[in-house]
């Protein structure tokens, strides 16, 4: 590895680490600003001595710097604290809910790729035609619709009116269909737009014309050359969107009463269970940074120059 590569990778790692630290500090800060947790736990009427004892037990009587360092230590050893509401370890609760969200995100993302990529290719290879306009408008529509509302309308149509599919809860694969479809809308639109953009860029390159002139078939040109060009951005967006959905599927999970992380976050907020909110934020930040790192690694594998 060249010295410049080491520098670049190092810089990128440092930047990601800085991002992570900023998020962790923000989460910590918000936790300190959220008022006295002993009042939340014991109720406003609790005697002061009892509160004091709890403060001591929770470590809230220590200097803030010590608390912060303890918190960071906890984060890096996998201990995200205790929920005020459930009297459980936050880490284990997140671990319980994660599989449900993963299921939903995985199915949604697969659907998004299956539809989004062909849609983008269709638009790019027929640039300027009504096919293009239709596909592009559809994609833009997918980025304009409040997806949870789209989910609600799916419930009305397929669960309430037609009675074909269950309206909520998890369980059988049938339960997964509507939530996954809803979940796929935004990434599908994004993938379609991105595919179209990078493919039509590639199709405009002179080497495509020269490949055509050399008698290579159009289909081959499109798939071998132009699509290869679009692969990396698509892969990037898939990884990053996965991170976003993993931590941000609150509204969709709410519509379908899906017992994932998003619902957990919502419950935590409604009960002002701040340690749990904080733990979910920290978890999301860790996932995000790891996925960003994954994207960087993918980039350096595919393109040795790295961007």
């Amino acid at each position: 590895m060249k010295a410049s590569t080491v520098r670049r990778v190092g810089g990128r790692l440092a930047s990601l680490f800085a991002s992570l630290l900023i998020a962790l500090s923000l989460a910590f800060l918000l936790g300190r600003l959220s008022g006295d947790p002993t009042a939340t736990i014991l109720g406003p009427m609790a005697p002061p001595e009892q509160r004091e004892a709890l403060r001591h037990q929770l470590g809230l009587d220590l200097p803030v710097v010590v608390q912060y360092l303890d918190y960071l230590k906890g984060v890096f050893t996998g201990d995200l604290g205790q929920s005020l509401q459930f009297y459980q370890s936050n880490t284990s609760m997140i671990a319980d809910r994660l599989p449900y969200t993963l299921q939903l995100v995985g199915a949604g993302m697969a659907l998004a790729l299956l539809v989004g990529v062909p849609l983008g290719v269709l638009a790019a290879t027929r640039e300027g035609t009504w096919w293009d306009r239709g596909a592009s408008t559809l994609a833009l529509l997918g980025q304009s619709v409040p997806v949870f509302w789209f989910g609600m309308m799916l419930v009305v149509l397929f669960a309430v009116k037609l009675g074909w599919l269950p309206a909520g809860q998890s369980g059988s694969p049938r339960h997964l269909i509507l939530p996954a479809l809803t979940m796929s809308v935004y990434p599908m639109a994004h993938i379609a737009r991105l595919t179209r953009a990078s493919m039509s860029d590639a199709l405009a390159e002179p080497y495509i014309d020269s490949a055509r002139a050399r008698g290579i078939s159009t289909r081959r040109v499109v798939w071998r050359h132009a699509f290869t060009n679009a692969m990396m951005p698509i892969l990037t967006i898939v990884v990053l969107q996965t991170g976003i959905l993993l931590s941000g599927a609150v509204a969709v999970e709410y519509v379908y009463s899906w017992p994932g992380l998003g619902q957990l976050a919502l419950q935590a907020i409604q009960f002002r269970d701040f340690p749990l909110v904080q733990a979910i934020v920290v978890f999301g930040a860790l996932v995000f940074v790891l996925l960003n790192l994954l994207v960087d690694v993918l980039h350096s594998i595919v393109d040795p120059r790295v961007r």
Binding site: S15, L16, S19, L20, I22, A23, L26, A27, L30, G243, I244, S247, G248, V250, A265, I269, V277, Q278, I280, V281, G284, A285, V287, F288, V289, N292
Partner: peptide, 12 residues
């Protein structure tokens, strides 16, 4: 690089 919407939820 961060799920700031979660931070937003935390603020709320």
């Amino acid at each position: 690089a961060l799920p700031f919407i979660l931070v937003a939820l935390a603020i709320i």
